[in-house]
Design a binder for these strands. Structure first.
Lengths: 246, 246
DNA sequence: CGGTCGGTTGAAAGCCTTCAAACGGTGTGG
DNA sequence: CCACACCGTTTGAAGGCTTTCAACCGACCG
């Protein structure tokens, strides 16, 4: 598979910014001019540890990155997963010592953007700073929905909700028609995103398949009955689609 | 009980800002000059509904405010609770249509600060905008920890974690010595914060009491064995105490 | 070809929920 | 001043969703 250039990753990121924030031509140019150091990381690698202090943010070019917390006995909980075009740890610009760690769910390419560059460009252009802030707020809203999901929905509904959300997020990045999309996650990883065990994740997956709601293989999800899936999930995409750009 | 003035609520908020962000004298004065419309709300009131668009942010003066999501059958999950001195929905400045609702856990006084005022002051003073952004990042980090808590810890540990966190947060607001603090939450509300049922919340509370870890009445928590409680919770306050102010 | 990884399956155990009922404190009205 | 109602807490028993433990399978890799 051809490797998207770093350039295109930043363009994707800019597109996402513009979907909810207004940026003039100069501001857009500034974003595209950000220095971006590419880096390929193999699957299942913790490339930012808990408590580590970082001086750059990561933008996903290809693959999938998960942010997670961990209990002392090693159980993990993904707090978010990030698809290409998303900045994984933009919050780290404001809080360089993170209480969450980063892990590649599959072989992944990222570009690293220095905090200093992000701060500088935000300082020069308040509209950019506002856009960054807004992205953080949006991402935090997703985490909040995950919390509702894990706290108050049963496994089947919870799982349906995750797939509905990811379908929308891939579509927003033009990497899906909203029906099917690449999702290179193992069932262990799905379990860690849903607050379940891998065994039960497997069984629920089979339930959803058996009900004809979706078809899923190791790396691809296809939604077969969107209405039924969204009903099962009680899914409302409002939190992913901000109303107005100011 | 004497009613703290609005002034002192904003002062408390400013103090929190300064604990992690550097603001010069003029910037501090700007914060204190923000217009603040006081409002008293009775207990158990949803004063911001799901999907509602707001044009002001709420700062808690006295009492306790919870932000929550809800499933279709009415089950609630608190996504955060906010003590006096905290801005409940600063993110709403960037995202006026919230996917979470607001509820008073007890009789509560707030002040409402217009989004426009917050945006203007942030636009004029990049350092203030950065401070606001940083608060949002910190709060999002707390939500992330809650997600880890609900997703991967059992009820006892989860509950211990919540009390450890609140002890620190009250202490940061100088409303506690870190050992005991006012917590006017019912067990139903605790349950909604922990992703449990009220019945099981009650039983776990008794467990913690029985183990001599804490003493809790309707409105006050006292930590009796801090070390044991933090051990049970696997509590690490790092996510509440940012390293450096820039 | 053996080894590893991810997926699948079965059975038993357990944590938590659900359903129901009773208890105690507080505020209100007669 | 007492009675009653309401709210939040407490307790018991039963059931269920999810976990845990174990084993097996298939695919891919060196």
């Amino acid at each position: 598979m051809p490797h998207p250039s770093n350039r295109s990753a930043i363009e994707l990121f800019l597109r996402r910014l513009r979907s909810h924030s207004t940026l003039n031509e100069e501001e857009r140019a500034e974003i595209l001019r950000l220095s971006a150091i590419p880096l390929d990381i193999k699957a299942h690698t913790d490339f930012v540890r808990l408590g580590e202090t970082v001086d750059h943010a990561c933008l996903v070019t290809e693959g999938l990155v998960g942010r997670f917390g961990q209990t002392e006995d090693g159980k993990r909980q993904f707090v978010s997963v990030h698809v290409p075009g998303e900045m994984v740890d933009l919050p780290s610009v404001m809080m360089p010592q993170s209480a969450t760690a980063l892990n590649t769910l599959t072989r992944t390419s990222i570009v690293r953007i220095p905090h200093k560059a992000l701060r500088d460009v935000g300082f020069r252009h308040p509209a950019i700073a506002a856009a960054f802030w807004r992205v953080c707020v949006l991402d935090a809203g997703i985490v909040a929905q995950w919390l509702v999901n894990v706290g108050r929905r049963d496994a089947r509904s919870r799982m349906a909700h995750l797939f509905c959300e990811l379908a929308v997020r891939y579509r927003l990045m033009d990497q899906s028609d909203g029906i099917s999309f690449e999702l290179p996650m193992t069932q262990d990883q799905l379990a860690d995103a849903l607050g379940l065990t891998a065994v039960h994740t497997n069984r629920m997956l089979q339930t959803l398949r058996g009900e004809g709601l979706l078809s899923i293989t190791r790396s691809r999800v296809e939604i077969l009955d969107k209405v039924a899936l969204e009903t099962a999930a009680e899914f409302d995409p409002g939190y992913l689609l901000p109303k107005s750009p100011d």
